[in-house]
Lab assay of single mutants.
Amino acid sequence: MSIQHFRVALIPFFAAFCLPVFAHPETLVKVKDAEDQLGARVGYIELDLNSGKILESFRPEERFPMMSTFKVLLCGAVLSRVDAGQEQLGRRIHYSQNDLVEYSPVTEKHLTDGMTVRELCSAAITMSDNTAANLLLTTIGGPKELTAFLHNMGDHVTRLDRWEPELNEAIPNDERDTTMPAAMATTLRKLLTGELLTLASRQQLIDWMEADKVAGPLLRSALPAGWFIADKSGAGERGSRGIIAALGPDGKPSRIVVIYTTGSQATMDERNRQIAEIGASLIKHW
């Protein structure tokens, strides 16, 4: 067993022997301040990774656009098919120029040779490549099948209805392509620590998230040296922004954090800054 596999296998073990965790309302004060600064709703939840206990939450059962955070769930569904012998990570998928959609920095470079399922998941999570996500959605049967996968996990809230990039439209009061912070946090925890996926697939999923290259201005910008984070960000229309993450000190994750916002007129930089400040408060009061 590799060191990384050992780390993920012992996530519940280490967490069980940690000192009790206590909620700190100071972080919620910052979440509410972010709402004021952005002029928009902000949803927040913080779960203990081992027990699933909610440590703090704000608007945990209000719907927010998922945006690209759905790509972690998508690759979880792909990995479940791999575990069941219905898919192979090494299978190569070929596609054409007509398949390319807006923001496809990886797939646009491989029109000639195609990409493997493993490479597509890596591109979808680490670079948020939209064509990679659409190609992977095709392998599982489309958005409705991802929703069905989530329902089978016990998540009857999260739903995907459309493809990239239309799913980022974020129309107010439109339930399409949305989740709730509580539902997303619980589902992410199941994917990373539950028995739904094999140990190898859980490790692969967290490795992809740990290698995320496009979430630097968010929670990662607030992390002290030595902290662990595996995350996936999302951005959408109407001032929408979000991030889902597993993080913790001492090089291992111990909490799940989900943050979503929508309806702001603020710039992307300002949305990023507010999420980073929430992260800084979380870490300060850990």
Rank of each mutant, 00 (worst) to 15 (best):
T116E: 08
N50D: 07
T187I: 10
A215Y: 09
G114V: 10
T126V: 08
L188G: 10
E164W: 01
G43K: 03
P143Y: 06
D177N: 07
Q274G: 12
A123H: 15
E175L: 13
G154Y: 13
A34C: 01
M209I: 08
Q203V: 07
A215I: 11
T158Y: 09
E169W: 05
D174Q: 02
N152E: 14
L219R: 07
E102D: 02
L223G: 11
V29M: 03
E102T: 08
I244Q: 11
I259E: 05
I171M: 03
A246M: 08
T193R: 01
V31L: 10
V78Y: 13
L223D: 01
T261A: 13
N152S: 10
D83P: 09
T69A: 04
D155R: 07
S233T: 11
M209A: 05
S240G: 06
Q203E: 12
I45Q: 00
E102L: 04
E62C: 00
A148I: 02
P25Q: 12
T186Y: 11
E237A: 12
R162L: 11
K144T: 09
F149E: 11
E108D: 01
H156S: 10
D99N: 06
G234S: 04
N173K: 09
D113W: 00
G226D: 10
A225Q: 03
R159I: 00
M66I: 03
C75M: 09
G242A: 06
L74N: 07
M66G: 03
T147C: 03
E46V: 12
L74E: 14
E61V: 01
C121L: 05
V101G: 04
D48L: 08
W163V: 11
R81T: 08
E237F: 13
I283P: 12
T193K: 02
T116V: 01
K144N: 11
E270D: 14
L47P: 01
I54W: 09
M153I: 13
D83K: 06
R220A: 03
V72N: 12
V106R: 13
K109G: 15
I93V: 01
V214W: 06
R162M: 06
I244D: 04
D269M: 05
T27E: 03
L192T: 07
D129F: 00
V214P: 14
I283E: 05
H94W: 12
P105K: 15
M184P: 12
L136V: 13
H156A: 06
D99W: 06
S96G: 00
A84Q: 04
A183N: 07
R41P: 06
L199C: 12
K213E: 14
I229A: 06
R189C: 11
T178H: 07
I256M: 04
Q86T: 15
R255N: 10
G248F: 10
T262W: 07
G242T: 03
L120P: 08
G43L: 01
A77I: 00
L55K: 11
I283M: 08
H110W: 01
L160P: 05
P143E: 14
G263A: 12
E195D: 07
D113H: 00
L137T: 15
E119P: 15
R92C: 04
I244Y: 10
A215E: 03
A230Q: 13
W286L: 05
K32N: 01
T178W: 12
G236N: 08
I244F: 12
G43P: 01
T131C: 13
R220H: 05
I125Y: 02
D48G: 09
A276S: 13
A34E: 02
T147N: 10
E35I: 02
L160Q: 03
R255L: 07
L38R: 01
R92P: 02
D99F: 07
T138G: 06
D231A: 08
L191Q: 07
A183C: 14
L205Q: 06
T131I: 11
L47F: 02
T116L: 08
G236A: 04
L205A: 02
L47Y: 06
H151F: 10
N272H: 00
G216S: 07
S264V: 03
